[in-house]
Design a protein around this nucleic acid. Structure first.
Length: 419
DNA sequence: TCTGGGGTCCTAGGACCC
DNA sequence: TCTGGGGTCCTAGGACCC
């Protein structure tokens, strides 16, 4: 048996922990640059607000109903997430962290699972302050589905255990949801399935495997099997090694200047390299991309991308920076109004498995230099030590975060004052 | 004026091998 | 005019997730 536990309106709940007066009030969290709404509480949904809507389009609703607005504060959400996961892990044999706000738990061999589900909810609420819902079932997809129902149906008190349902009730539960509500069935597949008369979760579970195999990718027939209670997807307790690492940001205003673009790329390389070393990985390929503003039709559109293969695995900032800047110089076109830039590391392996470069003596020094920079930046704060190219005259590329809350749990200067 | 970011998996088709 | 068969690996693009 698996459980799927997730935080309700997670980012908004994190903010509410430190602003209890916002309980019961509509709250929305914005994407980077305060662009779109990414998280809403049920009170905000009730006002007709939707995920993905640009803030400027709903300014009037926000003002009229005094919706609380926050820029995203990943320092806070990341730390609250770690606390939530640790709390859940204190009650179950093992967990698989699936995203910042949800995890699977392996419940094999445990009894009284519905009661356990309630205990998880209570402990997370008590210790971390985050409200959660719990779905319990013999497959991951069904656990996700039960979690979805637990959120939608108030009398369940946030917990639904598939094993508590009789056969007719299971059927009813699966008929309740549309195919598009199922984990793994996105808008495109939902549309194609509906056109074939497969509309509800129940319909998908009853569709013969051979039929699905013929018209859809394997994942769809796997999902159907999972809905019948067959565990196809494995429980993965430790995070598997990542395959790529991307750092990118939109600019708060259009950028034309090469130096400003170089400043943004510098920051992205520094950050990507830091994460790479933190996870003890090394990469063989680096890519850089720049994009114009796709929402404009009165300016010239351009997207530039190129990548380089180092031939060996590297994780030092100077080495990555050198290639990134060479690529940027190559893909940069003057006169374009850029809106976004980023770096992409691919072909990533565990550093201990990496073949050494016999002739790159220089790189060894760079590795040591990079580790020293990491240590200093960890102690004195991000950006304490940085490449000079990061300090461009232009500041247009920097992120807009007008409504950011303090980093309550990770900075002494931001500790909440009581009384 | 203002429109997010970071991931994974599957498949088809091309390049290449013997 | 006729033009093999059976593989593997890589990549781009599309779909999905939060």
């Amino acid at each position: 048996m698996f459980a799927l536990i997730d935080g309700n309106s997670f980012y908004a709940s994190c903010e509410r922990v430190f602003r209890p007066e916002l309980e019961q009030r509509p709250v929305v969290i914005l994407s980077n640059n305060d662009g779109c709404i990414v998280t809403l509480t049920k009170e905000a949904k009730a006002l007709g607000l939707k995920r993905g809507t640009p803030l400027f389009q709903v300014k009037d609703v926000i003002d009229k109903y005094q919706v609380a607005v926050f820029s995203s504060n990943y320092e806070l959400y990341g730390d609250m997430s770690a606390r939530m996961m640790a709390t859940i892990a204190s009650l179950v044999p093992s967990i698989e962290t699936y995203s910042i706000d949800e995890c699977f738990a392996d419940l094999a061999g445990l009894d009284h699972l519905t009661v356990l589900g309630q205990s998880i909810r209570e402990r997370v609420r008590m210790w971390v302050g985050i409200p959660t819902c719990v779905g319990i079932a013999p497959s991951k997809t069904l656990a996700k589905y039960c979690n979805h129902l637990a959120k939608k149906i108030p009398p369940l008190h946030g917990v639904l255990n598939w094993d508590d349902l009789s056969e007719p009730r299971r059927r009813k539960a699966l008929m309740f949801g549309a195919v598009g509500d199922i984990w793994g069935i996105g808008p495109r597949l939902a549309k194609r399935l509906s056109q074939l008369g497969i509309v509800s979760a129940w319909d998908l579970s009853q569709t013969p495997k051979a039929f699905l195999r013929e018209y859809f990718p394997v994942t769809v027939s796997q999902t159907a099997a999972e809905l019948r209670g067959e565990a196809v997807l494995d429980f993965v307790p430790v995070a598997e090694r990542r395959q790529r690492l991307v750092r990118s940001r939109s600019f708060s205003a259009d950028v034309k200047d090469f130096d400003a673009l170089a400043a943004a790329i510098t920051c992205h390389v520094e950050e990507a390299a830091r994460v790479l070393r933190q996870e003890r990985l090394a990469a063989r390929r680096i890519g850089v991309f720049v994009l114009s503003n796709r929402f404009r039709d009165n300016t010239e559109q351009y997207s530039g991308f190129d990548e380089r293969d180092f031939g060996v695995y590297v994780s030092d900032t100077p080495g990555l920076m050198h290639e990134a800047m060479a690529i940027l110089r190559q893909i940069y076109r003057p006169g374009i109004a850029y809106k976004k830039a980023g770096v992409l590391l691919q072909d990533i392996i565990d550093k201990r498995d990496a073949q050494w470069d016999l002739f790159a003596f220089e790189r060894e020094g760079n590795d040591r230099l990079s580790r020293v920079m990491d240590t200093i930046n960890a102690r004195y704060g991000k950006g304490a030590l940085s490449y000079a190219t990061a300090f461009s005259q232009a500041t247009d590329w920097k992120m807009k975060r007008q409504y950011k809350s303090p980093s309550y749990t990770t900075r002494f200067s931001d500790l909440l004052r009581v009384g």
